[in-house]
Design a protein around this nucleic acid. Structure first.
Lengths: 243, 243
DNA sequence: ACTTATTGTGACAATTTAATAACAAATAGA
DNA sequence: TCTATTTGTTATTAAATTGTCACAATAAGT
């Protein structure tokens, strides 16, 4: 397990680092947010520890950069702060941190929290096969039914109900809906949609997605359902769970 | 998402429960470790909150039981304790808890930590098993959001809320806001903003930033929000965290 | 007050992006 | 087979976003 520490407090840095190394972790250190950002990308750590009070850029800015990269979503992040009110603690967690610790803390406690995180990460790897069986085919046959407002979709029977009435949609339209309904309130690019619904290695023009969305919308309109698939300008489309 | 609370402190129990329910969680309560153990098996919660100081059996004993059952490995556990030294905190985490919180804490903080855990759970299931959680679920995909005063912004859904109401902004405006909200109280030059928001190698007149700021401000005005983006004369602009 | 530097404003053109429509290719059903 | 449906591509249209400028307003310095 590789841990990256981003902390400008060199003394604190050293204490933690030594302790973690002694416990068998692979430890890398950065003193500034800038270097930290580079290290995150090059070193590919499993866990990143960030001090919120960095000299050049705030820790939460680094966190936000990390969370912005899809490739880095899996890395776990623990934030530190020296003196913080509850608000900033909540904010830190809400903006994507996995844990938050108030300085000063003992290396032992840090290690305990790091280990707790690792246990979760292990579950991810254990379930990797589950997660990877994505996109095409297998995924769709599972699961029961999902319902949001007027829309109910049933995977097994491949049926779509609008306001309780059976509505007819083509297979691709169904798949798109199925995908969207399992990811409400997340905007996807056309490319992402293609990848998720069509499959990884299928080449289709991104604009094709527009057509299918259009057809789905038309069907919805017939049944008097409100626009459930919203276009997010500059991004793509999103299934919006009302309100 | 279903949460089971095991806590003999009824008052505390109630406060937490109400808050979590309001946030869309499915909440079940138990007052003793014995009942709690039965509930864990029957209710199949996603997350269990345990107060370490239960009347009949200690919380860590319940945790131990849960971790012993293979079927229950996946459930996340957060432990509470009223007055505990660091040692017991470490012990709690080492014996399998996902998180540990010192009482008293505000419901908001609890929710933030619960959400942090859920994000991890989501990564584990990676859109695949979410089908089974189905329909009624509150907003599972809350995603990463930042909030200051009247302003809340959500990266995944690309949504901006002002005073709780959905506000419409263009992509660039959104990006600027998103950037600013992750770097509160830091003044940036137009050049810096361009670099951060537009990208490294894109050539745009610095004064263009003014226009976007203007449009953002106009939107804020409509919703009666105070000037959040302040101009710093001679430098550029800054997102000011009100206080 | 005058001058200068800096920012706000409004109008407009250029650009980007999405909705629409029409059509060809592929697929499946009878 | 033939037909109807589904699917993907492309061109056109419509709409929204964006960048730029000239100029007004404002602040700062002398």
């Amino acid at each position: 397990m590789k841990i990256l520490i981003v902390d400008s407090d060199i003394e604190h840095n050293r204490v933690i680092s030594i302790h973690l190394k002694k416990s068998g972790f692979d430890v890398v250190e950065s003193e500034t947010g800038k270097i930290g950002w580079r290290s995150v990308q090059s070193e590919k750590p499993d866990i990143v520890l960030i001090d919120c009070t960095l000299s050049d850029s705030s820790g939460s800015a680094l966190l936000y950069k990390i969370r912005g990269k899809k490739r880095l979503r899996k890395v776990a992040v623990i934030l530190f702060a020296t003196n913080s009110d509850e608000d900033s603690q909540v904010r830190a967690l809400d903006s994507g941190a996995d844990d938050f610790m108030l300085k000063p803390f003992s290396p032992r406690l840090l290690e305990a929290r790091v280990n707790a995180l690792i246990r979760r990460l292990h579950l991810i790897f254990d379930n990797a096969d589950l997660a990877n069986r994505g996109s095409n085919g297998g995924d769709l046959s599972k699961g029961w039914s999902v319902e949001y407002g007027d829309v109910r979709i049933n995977a097994e029977s491949h049926k779509l109900f609008l306001k309780g009435l059976r509505a007819d949609v083509s297979p691709t339209e169904f798949n798109i809906l199925y995908f969207f309904m399992h990811n409400p309130d997340v905007a996807f690019t056309r490319e992402q949609i293609l990848k998720e619904v069509w499959g990884d290695n299928i080449v289709v023009e991104p604009r094709t997605v527009d057509q299918h969305i259009r057809r789905i919308r038309a069907t919805f309109k017939i049944y008097g359902c409100s626009n459930i698939i919203v276009t997010v300008r500059g991004v793509g489309y999103m299934f919006e769970q009302l309100n």
